[in-house]
Simulated assay, not measured.
Amino acid sequence: MKSSSRPQSATSLPRAPRDDESRRSSRYLVLMGIRIACFILMVVITPYGWYTWVLGGAAIVLPYIAVVLANVGANVRRTGAENPERALPATPSAPFIPGQDAPVLRIEETRAVERPRDSSDGQA
C-alpha cells in the first residue's frame, strides 16, 4: 500500500451518484442529438454520395456508442484515486544501527491498589 505524507484531498473522492448520473445522461442526449442530425443530413443533402454512407453509418453506430458511454461510471475511467485508508510506512522512521540501544517501550500492568477510605465520604 502506498503511504503518503500529505493529507487526503476532497478532490480524490469519487463523484456523487447524482452528479455522475446527470453527466452520463447529458452525454447520452448529446450523442443522440448528433445521431438525429446525421440522419437528417443523410436524407436532406443531395446529390447522394460517399458522405451519405458515412452519415448513415454514424446514425447506425452512435446509439451503441451512446449506451456504452452512458453505462460507464466515473469510477471505471478514473485512475490514480487515493485510498482513504492510511497506511503505516513500511520502513522504520529512524534506522536501527547495530551496537546502539534501540528505543524500547515497556508497558507493565500493576495490581489495582485499593485506596484508603476517607472519613469525609460519609461512611463511618
Rank of each mutant, 00 (worst) to 15 (best):
A58D: 14
I107Y: 02
I97L: 08
F39P: 08
N71Q: 09
E109R: 13
E21L: 08
E114M: 08
D19T: 08
A59D: 03
M1H: 15
A94E: 10
I107L: 06
S25Y: 03
W53A: 08
S119D: 14
G73S: 04
A112P: 10
A70C: 06
Q100I: 04
M42Y: 05
I60H: 15
A37W: 00
S119Q: 13
R78H: 01
T52Q: 14
V76P: 06
A66K: 05
C38S: 04
V30G: 09
N83K: 02
S120A: 12
V61P: 11
N83Y: 09
N75Y: 08
P14E: 01
T110K: 11
R6K: 06
S22T: 10
E114L: 09
A16R: 00
D118K: 04
E82Q: 01
V113N: 01
R23I: 11
A37L: 10
P103N: 06
S12I: 05
Q8T: 03
P98S: 06
S12Y: 01
S93H: 12
M32N: 03
D121K: 06
A37N: 09
L31E: 06
I40N: 12
R106I: 09
R117E: 11
A10D: 09
Y28F: 14
P84R: 02
Q123I: 06
W50H: 04
P95F: 15
P63K: 14
R18D: 07
P116A: 03
A74R: 10
R27E: 10
L41N: 07
A70L: 04
N83T: 03
G122N: 11
L41Y: 00
T52C: 03
A70S: 13
P116I: 15
V72K: 07
I45S: 13
V104R: 11
S3A: 02
N83F: 06
E114G: 15
A74F: 00
P103M: 11
A90Y: 05
E109S: 10
R6M: 00
V54D: 04
V67H: 10
P95R: 14
A102I: 11
R18K: 07
G49K: 07
I34Y: 08
N71C: 13
R111F: 10
L55K: 05
G122P: 06
I40S: 15
P14N: 03
T91Q: 12
E109I: 10
D118I: 11
E82P: 00
S120K: 12
P116D: 07
I45M: 15
P116N: 04
I34G: 07
R24C: 10
D118C: 15
Y48S: 14
M1N: 07
S93P: 06
S26Y: 11
